[in-house]
Every structure is written in structure tokens, then in C-alpha cells.
Nucleic acid binder design. Structure first.
Length: 433
RNA sequence: GUGAGUGUAGCUCAACGGUUAGAGCACCGGACUGUGGAUCCGGUGGUUGGGGGUUCGAGUCCCCUCACUCACCCCA
């Protein structure tokens, strides 16, 4: 049916079958982050526009052309967050969370919004899981975060991936490097493509990102930031590499890796997958040692990454949890009443149970149970009621047994836990307590 | 914002410019009265994305438009 009402460009519905996978991935993230000492934080989806202009960067593409910004009824400029880090930093300053023992570790799940042209792995509403750590400058932490990301991707069953790292320096070394880079690039300007000539003015680091073969050839010879770090940044970068070796994480130093946000300092990284298409980053992040101060907070360093869930799920080999649902097939009004009561009890025990109200033949009821992917069907009619049993049918095997009414809950619990198959359960010789 | 490709049933796809646009899957019903999945038979379902044009005749050719996809750009 075409109504003309469809999801907006670059957005999509996550239907129940796929939502199962999302739940699984989110549960894994949660489990791992909690184990590494991270705690969940939730902040609003809308923020004051200035938050991103100031943090993400006035000249970045995200801010200049990709934000969903509107004026609310009070005349304030509001933006649907295009990334997460500024929100956490704002919340930490607002609630003085930095007064708690550091390092502070947070994680977050949620939708982000960027008005891009959609393509494979890129949506206008997309979902990220973010982790951020504040108050620890030791490069061992940078390595720990990457070690955690590595473990997480293992658990998500994403085999094909590569870790890229770089250092983008700091306010001490970056300006002089950029000046030097610009000076060197100017000499070759006439050979560069149109885009690169523009990049040279706006953000010369981006020259390294160009895909034009001739530009790539030229940028090979341009000075690399990793050769021009100040002693502190050099020590930090060496430390990161040493700790990555300690964890036996393989990585590639990629001087071309430039993060597109203004606040990054020192460590930047990306984990990419060749299975993804042109938008190949599974996660990306880095250090932002001066962002907190920029927002008027204390001078506390930070580091974090964002992982794109749509991209992760498009290559993850995990499957959703098995459906374990009980279906009631009944014949007659008395049986219906009994089933309704039992269904209510099972639901309160957390056992997923379905009962239907329309009167159907047993054949129809079993047929529906089959289509619904039901695990076990309880069959109850006049015969069973007089005998004090229900027929319990295991749908996958077709195995069916008469179970005494006072035993059915116990039997279903065992089945639901997956400990035994119906054929292996013996309720005649149960131990009385 | 730029470029290219694709739009036919809920899904996957057929149909040389020529009858009333078909098939498989799915859905509904029957064969089958308290036992599902298989098989067989039947049925519902389409403004061929939308609009205009060429033609005796358009799903098919042309133009416009919209949507989707991929890529550039940028990034998770």
C-alpha cells in the first residue's frame, strides 16, 4: 500500500527481526563497557547550537553544512546533535562530575543526526555507541581503550578489520607543523587538484585524504606530522605504540589519518573494515585534551571513540537470541479460562507466552504456532481437563507429552533454560521437597 | 551540493513497441471434524513511482519530476 508517507530520506525503520540484533549488540557493548569500569550517561538529543559550533569546530563540514538546526518557540537556536562528545563534556561541567575521582569513564548509546547525502553505511539518523574517559593523560589509557575496542569487535564477530593510529600533535607543535606543511605544499600547488588547492587554504591536513592519484603522489613527499611532534607529543605517541605492542595489538601508523573535528589532540585512531564500502570506519576517535577547558571547565584531558552501529551490524556475524515462546492452543470455554490463568502465571515468571482470543480449530492453532516460530505449544481441551494434564508439544521435534497440571510450570522452566529437551524430562519421579 | 545506476504484486524477478502485465515465495481458502511443517488444487493482491510527450498502439522510446542505490565530498 502506497500512502505517500514513508520514512524520511536517510532514516530507516528497524523492524523486529533486525531489532533482535541491535539488542544483542547493545547488550554486548554494555557488558564489556561495564566490565571495563564505564558507566552509562544519558543526555538530551537536542542541544544549544553553540555547543557544536564551539566544540566540533566552526569550519568543520559537520557544523557548516550537516547540522539539523532550527529555532524553537523561544527564539533559541537548537541543534539535533551530530556527534556526542560535546554533550558529555557539557554534562560533566554542568554537574561538576569532575569532582569525582578520576579517571571518569562514560558510555552512551543513541541516535545522531547529520544532513549528508545518504549512501552505503551513511544515514541522516544513525546510531553510535560512544565511550569517553576524562582525567588520565597516560598513553597506557589510550592503548587500553583500543584494547577494549578490539575485544568488543571480537565479541561482535567482526574479523576483517584494521587499526590505524596517528598523532595530530598539540597546540605546541601543530601550528608550526601546519605552517611548514602549507609552505611546502604551496611550492607544488599548481600540480594539485581543485579540491586540494582549496584544502590547502582551509585545512592543509586534509591534503592527505585526497583520492586523486596525482595528489597522493605529491602528498607522499610532504612533511608528515609524526616527524614534527614536540617532545611531549612524541613521548606520548611512543608510549602508545609501546603499550599497543604490550597488548599485542597490530596496527598501522597512518600519518594521513586526520580527524574531521577541531578538538582532537595527539592520539587519533580509526578501525576500518574492508567489507564496508566507501564509508569504511567502524569506529573512530582520539584524544581531546583541551575541550573541557574550551567550554569553560577545568583543564582536564579526555579521550574517546564513537562506533557506528549500522556499520558494525552490517558486518557483524552475531545472531539474535533464540526465540523461546509458549503458545496456548485450547478447545472449549473451560479450557480457555484455564489457559488464560496459566498464561498469566507464566508471563509473571518471565516466560514469553502467547494466547489468542479468536476461536479456531486445533489445526489452525498449531498452524499459527508454527508460523509464529513458537518453541512449545500447550494443548488443552476437555479430555485433558478431566485427566488433569496438558499436552505439551515441542514444535521443532514434534515431541509431545502429557504433563500433569501441577508440573507444567516446572517443566516449562527447564525447557526455557535450554537445559533439557522435552524427551529427556521425567516428571513422574520428581523429588518432593 | 555533484555524478552515475535502478524503479513492474508484501518480497525476488519475468514480459521483442502489439490481446486482459505474469511466475516463484508470502498471504487467504480447500483436500484434512482434537494435532503444525510436506504435497496438490483454488483465491486475494498492480493507477508498471508520478506527470507529460512520440506512436494506430508504451511497462518498454523521449522529456520532466520523485524515490532508492552506489560513488564523490565528508565521516561513525
Amino acid at each position: 500500500m502506497k500512502t505517500g508517507l514513508t520514512a524520511l530520506k536517510g532514516t530507516k525503520d528497524i523492524l523486529p527481526a533486525e531489532a533482535r540484533l541491535w539488542q544483542k549488540a547493545e547488550a554486548l557493548c554494555r557488558e564489556i563497557f561495564e566490565a571495563y569500569g564505564y558507566r552509562e550517561i544519558r543526555t538530551p538529543i537536542i542541544e544549544p547550537t553553540e555547543l557544536f559550533i564551539k566544540g566540533t569546530g566552526e569550519t568543520t563540514d559537520i557544523v557548516t553544512k550537516e547540522m539539523y538546526t532550527f529555532t524553537d518557540k523561544g527564539g533559541r537556536s537548537i541543534t539535533l546533535r551530530p556527534e556526542y562528545t560535546p554533550s558529555v563534556v557539557r554534562a560533566i561541567i554542568e554537574h561538576r562530575l569532575y569532582l569525582q575521582p578520576s579517571p571518569l569513564r562514560f558510555y552512551y548509546f543513541g541516535p545522531m543526526f547529520r544532513h549528508d547525502r545518504p549512501q552505503r553505511g551513511r544515514y541522516r539518523q544513525f546510531h553510535q555507541v560512544d565511550v569517553e574517559v576524562f582525567g588520565e593523560s597516560d598513553p597506557a589509557l589510550d592503548a587500553e581503550i583500543l584494547e577494549m575496542a578490539d575485544y568488543l569487535l571480537d565479541r561482535l564477530e567482526i574479523k576483517n578489520r584494521e587499526l590505524l593510529i596517528n598523532s595530530v600533535g598539540c597546540p605546541v607543535c601543530r601550528p608550526s607543523y601546519l605552517a611548514f606543511l602549507r609552505q611546502e605544499a604551496e611550492k607544488l600547488k599548481s600540480q594539485l587538484c581543485q579540491d586540494c588547492q582549496r584544502r590547502l587554504e582551509l585545512n592543509p591536513l586534509r591534503l592527505f585524504d585526497c583520492k586523486e592519484p596525482t595528489c597522493q603522489g605529491i602528498t607522499q613527499s610532504l612533511p608528515k606530522i609524526t616527524d614534527h611532534l614536540c617532545p611531549d607529543c612524541q613521548r606520548h605517541f611512543d608510549g602508545l605504540r609501546r603499550w599497543l605492542d604490550f597488548y599485542r595489538l597490530s596496527y598501522r601508523v597512518e600519518p594521513r589519518l586526520v580527524r574531521g573535528l577541531d578538538y582532537y589532540t595527539r592520539t587519533t585512531f580509526e578501525i576500518i573494515s574492508p567489507d564496508l564500502g566507501a564509508q569504511n570506519a567502524l569506529l573512530g576517535g582520539g584524544r581531546y585534551d583541551h575541550l573541557m577547558k574550551l567550554y569553560g571547565g577545568p583543564d582536564i584531558c579526555g579521550i574517546g571513540f564513537a562506533m557506528g552501529l549500522e556499520r558494525v551490524l552490517s558486518v557483524a556475524k552475531i545472531s539474535g537470541d533464540e526465540e523461546k515462546t509458549i503458545y496456548f492452543a485450547y478447545l472449549g470455554e473451560r479450557a480457555k479460562e484455564y489457559c488464560l490463568q496459566l498464561c498469566r502465571e507464566l508471563r509473571r515468571l518471565g516466560l514469553s507466552s502467547i494466547i489468542e482470543y479468536k476461536e479456531r480449530s486445533l489445526k489452525e492453532q498449531l498452524g499459527r504456532a508454527n508460523k509464529l516460530g513458537i518453541s512449545w505449544t500447550i494443548i488443552l481441551g476437555e479430555e485433558e481437563l478431566t485427566q488433569g494434564v496438558v499436552q505439551l508439544k515441542e514444535m521443532a521435534s514434534g515431541e509431545q507429552k502429557a504433563v500433569p497440571l501441577d508440573q507444567i510450570i516446572r517443566v516449562l522452566k527447564i525447557l526455557e533454560r535450554g537445559q533439557k529437551k522435552l524427551a529427556d524430562i521425567d516428571w513422574q519421579n520428581r523429588v518432593n521437597r
